[in-house]
């Protein structure tokens, strides 16, 4: 009798097996082989030597990238939660007109393909000749400045773009959560003489915390393994800028994925996979302790 549940869920399990588990398993297998350009069809298992080489990729440059990634994740999360919360609160203000229009407009960055958004910002905002920022600088009589050529300003540029792209999700989630807070609580708080900030602090925040926690964890991961914004703004072939900005994923890509050495790249991928699993366990635990 115990077999029946397995049989019912067999199609779904099989799908997960094919789509999720198999690629990971196959990557693990490739990481143990010498598959590269010179051993394309005749590759063989060579044991753990790729891992020994891959560990050398996690050098001082990698540590720098890890630090940048952590800073990037923390700053992004703080900004997204802060801005998302206040904008969502503003959208729920009593007597606000055209509420739906604002919500639709705020969703726009999310609806746009990331690649298009990033290229639009690169050319439309940051470009030295045609970008909006430099047009302003020129109009103010200031010299042109290439924002993406300096590591610190490039980091800020990536931050601004990521905020623009990720905020809609945060606003939508917090906005949804706000609807679930019992309105009578605010009424009784008002009767007790509570002000706006007291209501926010003692009713709104505790009320929505549990609902937005999963969204926050998900966004943390997406931010941690961010690749496209940093890569397309500062590192794309033919469009490389002077900034020396790397997250763990762009660093690993630059150092292990352009060589057509699939054995080595797979070993690096597996190590990154372990790193992200550890990061997820740590985040989950800290969330549970809360």
């Amino acid at each position: 009798m115990r077999k029946k549940p397995w049989l019912y869920s067999a199609p779904a399990l099989l799908l997960i097996l094919i789509v999720v588990v198999f690629p990971i398993g196959y990557t693990a297998y490739i990481s143990l082989t010498n598959m590269n350009l010179y051993h394309w069809a005749d590759f063989r298992v060579i044991g753990l030597s790729n891992y020994a080489r891959a560990l050398f990729k996690f050098d001082s440059g990698f540590l720098g990238a890890l630090f940048t990634t952590l800073l990037w994740t923390v700053v992004n999360m703080a900004l997204q939660l802060f801005c998302g919360f206040w904008i969502a609160l503003g959208l729920n203000a009593k007597g606000l007109r055209l509420r739906r229009l604002y919500k639709t407009l705020l969703m726009l960055p999310w609806a746009m393909p990331a690649y298009v958004s990033i290229l639009l910002w690169r050319v439309g905002i940051f470009n030295t000749e045609f970008g909006l920022l430099n047009q302003w600088l020129t109009a103010l009589g200031l010299p042109k400045y290439s924002i993406l050529d300096n590591t610190v300003t490039a980091f800020l540029a990536c931050l601004a773009l990521n905020l623009w792209m990720a905020l809609p999700f945060m606003i939508a989630t917090i906005d949804g959560a706000l609807q679930s807070v019992d309105a009578s609580l605010y009424e009784s708080a008002s009767l007790d003489g509570a002000g706006f900030f007291q209501k926010v602090r003692f009713i709104t925040v505790p009320g929505i915390r549990a609902i937005i926690a999963p969204a926050a964890v998900m966004t943390t991961f997406i931010t941690f393994k961010q690749f496209d914004i940093v890569y397309l703004l500062t590192q794309q072939k033919g469009y490389m800028t002077g900034a020396n900005l790397n997250t763990v994923i762009t660093y690993a890509y630059q150092n292990a994925f352009v060589s057509n050495n699939y054995g080595l790249s797979s070993a690096v991928s597996m190590l990154l996979f372990v790193l992200i699993i550890l990061f997820s366990l740590a985040t989950n635990r800290s969330l549970r302790e809360e």
Partner: peptide, 22 residues
């Protein structure tokens, strides 16, 4: 030769470091 495929990256980094990062 196949090595060229991996050289565009370092060559571009070199030029960028000289021309854009000073």
């Amino acid at each position: 030769i196949p090595e060229m495929g991996v050289l565009w990256g370092p060559a571009e980094s070199f030029l960028v470091a000289v021309n854009k990062s000073g």
